[in-house]
């Protein structure tokens, strides 16, 4: 038990034991960019956008998976961090095929919003232009691997909020991709409850409602947090 006192960006804050730097920062109104973090499910530190500096180490730490300790000194904004975050976001764009102009998520996309806020005006790396397909076999949900950033938010929401365990990651490296069950067409899945929590969780246009056209994929991701809160703390939002 007990609280820890630490310094984030020169500001002395106190945080509960065992919380992450990200939580401590958020609780104190300090914003750290994130992409794979999702309120309501555990963190995996997949996207590396929340990297921060901790005094005494030359290493960078992912704020979403690093716990606070007494006397910790954290820097969330620096030229170095800016550089790495920008590189990371550019690599995410270069890795798959993002054509925002015709994307269902255009205007409601966390990846796009981050790119804008991090000042990404172009991508310095060669695009990979991989050949990924889509899975449109589900009656009303669709998956486009071209827009997936492998944040695994959908997987975690599917396993740990819905408890269905339909969504999984298959493959390694650049071949990694999200599958349903043991790589079956989504529409054939016996475990999928069609709850659409994966869609709610997805930061990009990779998961969408079939029939949506450009920019129509708006979603309220906080709903997932409410569900978890209600379940774990018996607190309902009315």
């Amino acid at each position: 038990m007990g609280a820890k006192t630490l310094i984030i960006d020169g500001q002395t804050v106190s945080a509960e034991n065992h919380v992450t730097i990200l939580q401590a920062a958020t609780d104190n109104g300090i914003t750290i960019p994130t992409l794979c973090h999702l309120d309501g499910v555990y963190d995996v530190g997949a996207c590396r956008l929340c990297l921060v500096e901790v005094k005494g180490s030359t290493k960078l730490f992912s704020a979403c998976t690093t716990r606070v300790y007494e006397g910790m000194e954290v820097t969330t904004q620096s030229e170095r961090l800016k550089k790495y975050r920008r590189m990371t976001i550019e690599l995410l764009f270069a890795e798959r095929n993002h054509v925002c102009a015709v994307c269902v998520a255009n205007g409601h996309c966390e990846l796009q919003a981050l790119a804008t806020s991090l000042g990404m005006d172009h991508v310095r790396y060669d695009y990979c232009f991989p050949k990924w397909g889509m899975d449109l076999t589900h009656p009303f949900l669709g998956m486009d691997d071209n827009r997936c950033i492998l944040c695994t938010r959908c997987v975690r929401a599917c396993w740990h909020i819905e408890g269905a365990g339909t969504k999984n990651v298959a493959g390694r490296g650049s071949k990694s991709h999200i599958i349903s069950d043991l790589n079956e067409p989504w529409g054939d899945s016996e475990t999928c409850t069609s709850c659409a929590k994966c869609l709610l969780s997805c930061p990009t246009g990779a998961l969408f409602h079939k029939g949506d056209t450009v920019g129509e994929s708006e979603r309220d991701r906080s709903k997932l947090g409410y569900i978890v809160n209600a379940r774990e703390k018996q607190q309902w939002i009315v």
Partner: peptide, 9 residues
Amino acid sequence: GRPYSEMPG
């Protein structure tokens, strides 16, 4: 290979 609903975009 794209959904028909994307075509107006």
